[in-house]
Design a protein around this nucleic acid. Structure first.
Lengths: 331, 331
DNA sequence: CTTGGTATCGATACCGGTATCGGTAACAGA
DNA sequence: TCTGTTACCGATACCGGTATCGATACCAAG
């Protein structure tokens, strides 16, 4: 199409030195005189030389690539984790490569396999509920495996996140302490979003401890969304008007619930509770309860672990980094 | 850490054949007997063999990598584009690699350079306002360059998106036709988000054509968010109570505006207009106007172009794919 | 029995860099 | 003058695959 991609060999020839010397000069390695270095740099500039990381990585046996597998890109949660990873990797010379699993274990396995074949220096995956085969593959890769978001399970190497079970429990406790008594639940596709399921289970456990239970619930089968939350809330409110609190699978759904409560003029006697602590939640005209999950921070910590694993004198980092979500929005 | 990564050579040895034959067997290439193929496959299975794409790509001179550079991950727009790219690439054997530029041209240049050094088969970048140096680099890469989101400018190779100038113009025309007369504007960091600036410019042009102008405006200097939109709207409404319509840099900001209008009990006499057509916008308890941008579709089309560029018999695709955003929410 | 075609496989040369080690020149000290 | 360092540079062997071409075996046809 356009011009020709120049190689190190050509740069070396143009500078009148050997390939090896050119390589050293461009990398700023020692054993190169100033004069030679300048000659090479100029030649590289002139030829628009752009290194070839394939060759570099193959030769040096390190890719400085961090593979990242997340289940979805359709709500803001995982993109924020990715942003966190991106910041955390900044200045390290490492590159993140992302893959999406669509909450599908088979797809996840394939994505992970594809990523591993690039021989990344570390891999970050979401959750720790991978099937045995996937775990075997990950262990076999002989690189640090960083499992994020979830803490409820047995990690392979590193684990950064929070306990969704506990998050659900704490939210239930806080709501009960605030005097709520008649609970409903609204969620979507819990068979796929395992973490939402764990939150619900934790919530329900505490309800039972207090001789309570969900009076009514609605489960959607599509991806979570504000509209879905709103729609299901209207349904639930009309069939169970006595509810004074609804727990949602996440903040998107809860925001929809808040809108529904406004439309039904129920904002004063019912409280919606979600999960994530989205920016949106704080701006809503009606207060909703939520657990703030440190998404960006989880990404940053995961990135730091990936970087650390490259450092020769890796300080002994803790294998598990646990965050405790702060609950807000309960009057 | 764990086990040893096995190579093709080892698989070949274990199967009692040459490296070359093993390679052919694993790729399903011809010239391999069924019996030999099975032997190799079994050996590979036994050794947990995982191909090495670095070596593969270096040797075959094609990476099947699609580099993608987006400015941000902190609102849902670009993640949805990435999701679109991901779906569009599915089944093609191509892998997307993402980079974030943070709306910073210098950072964008660096990210692009880093990505190009992986020798991707195509590159997708956001917008067509790259500085000359970056354009030169992109052209020099000798791969198809796909510029997305924006149409207002001169593309390098391919262009998929919509005209933000026109989007602004059309929105203004629609709002004026609906009887709105006293306009305000609320945005944020327009020096960085060039497309939002173009929409504003288009909007303003039409206002002028109709002997109108923004009566008041507020510009934030942080990233756009619902809270920021709400905050600035409260400010603007109190200083310019006569407004009957506010144009926002995007839907996040406009949603914040909608919340502010509710809190100020102004929902009946003022209309908020945004851009993107977010899912959230449709669920809001108060209607806002918006232009629906086909984010997922843009990603899919871009991915298709990236795939097509690999096909030997590339059908002559149009260099420019233009979308016209549909305007909704105007009563 | 020779010839020719087909099926199957392997040897060798890359791809574009880096690691390693050895060589040369210049300069210091004995 | 001889020897030992140090600074600088290049030849060679990889890294782990694929492309290419040639070799071998087998079978049918002449």
């Amino acid at each position: 199409m356009h011009t020709h991609k120049s190689t190190l060999e050509e740069v070396a020839a143009a500078a009148g030195v050997s390939k090896m010397t050119a390589s050293r000069a461009l990398r700023g390695a020692p054993d190169v005189s100033i004069k030679t270095r300048d000659k090479v740099l100029q030649a590289a500039e002139r030829l628009n030389y752009l290194g070839n990381r394939l060759a570099l990585s193959l030769s040096s046996q390190r890719t400085d690539l961090v593979a990242v597998v997340v289940p979805s890109m359709s709500n803001i949660v995982f993109p924020e984790v990715l942003a966190g990873i991106s910041t955390g990797l900044e200045g390290s010379g490492m590159q993140a490569v992302f893959g999406i699993s669509d909450y599908d274990v088979t797809k996840e396995r394939n994505v992970i396999r594809d990523m591993l074949s690039w021989r990344p220096s570390a891999i970050i995956v979401t959750g720790l509920d991978q099937p045995d085969e996937t775990v075997r593959m990950l262990k076999n890769a002989a690189i640090p495996v960083i499992q994020i978001m979830d803490l409820d399970g047995t990690p392979i190497d590193f684990n950064v996140g929070l306990s969704h079970c506990k998050a659900g429990e704490e939210m239930a406790r806080a709501l009960i302490a605030a005097g709520r008594k008649r609970f409903g639940y609204i969620g979507s596709a819990l068979d796929r979003d395992l973490r939402a399921g764990k939150r619900k289970a934790g919530f329900e456990r505490v309800l039972h401890e207090n001789r309570l239970a969900f009076i009514g619930q609605r489960l959607g089968d599509t991806l979570s969304s504000v509209s879905l939350g709103k729609y299901l809330t209207h349904q639930l409110l009309s069939s169970e008007p006595s509810l004074d609190c609804i727990y949602y699978s996440n903040d998107d759904m809860a925001a929809g619930g808040a809108f529904a409560s406004m439309e039904a003029s129920r904002t004063d006697d019912i409280l919606m509770a979600g999960f994530n602590g989205l920016e949106l939640a704080a701006a809503l005209p009606v207060r909703i309860a939520t657990s703030r999950s440190p998404r960006h921070m989880i990404g940053e910590v995961a990135a730091r672990l990936a970087r650390g694993s490259m450092a020769p004198n890796a300080p002994s980092v803790s294998k598990i980094t646990a965050f405790v979500p702060e609950i807000t929005g309960i009057v």
